[in-house]
Design a protein around this nucleic acid. Sequence first.
DNA 1: ATGAAGATGAAT
DNA 2: TTCATCTTCATC
Length: 191
Amino acid sequence: MRLTHQLLRRRFFSRSVHEVAPELIGAMLLFNGAGGMIVEVEAYHHTDPAAHSFGGRTARNAVMFGPAGYAYVYRSYGIHWCLNFVCEGEGSASAVLIRAIEPREGIAAMRRRRGVRDERLLCSGPGRLCQALGIAGVHNGLALDAPPFALHARSDEPAVVTGPRIGITKAADIPWRYGLKGSPFVSKPFR
DNA sequence: ATGAAGATGAAT
DNA sequence: TTCATCTTCATC
């Protein structure tokens, strides 16, 4: 893989979550050398009733209230782990949920951790991609610009599509899911 | 102490 | 469509 493109630093994430989310489409996410291109994300602004931080600071969402550029990892449905990138200024408590990546690096390790061969089933979904990359609760609060994380800016501007979010009951109609147009690696098709 | 809901995924 | 699985948070 060519690493000619820029590493995403804290400044990249220190902006509105609605600017950062679409710009993450096409970026490269690596964790301990395994990962791929981000093809689907969801924006969670603190004013959004569906955001974990909406009801105020708790033990679980504390990282969301910290500075931008850190990983917020939480347990979903008692079984899965989900990865977010904290954005905006400290105290804003807004983040982007990483929902799917197109596998590029460390595919053998991903298959081993996931127990499936089909590349479309490796990282297409927030729980799946965490399992494939080996991301878990112990990684909550880690900086995104230092190992084991490595995030690289996209070199071209891809075609981005939007739609309502997945698995949301409150504010389900808010179209803050962003995806790479035509990608077969999104967790659910855009329409 | 208890209970209901939950930013999911896999099987049926 | 059902269900596994369990943390989190509000309520009693």
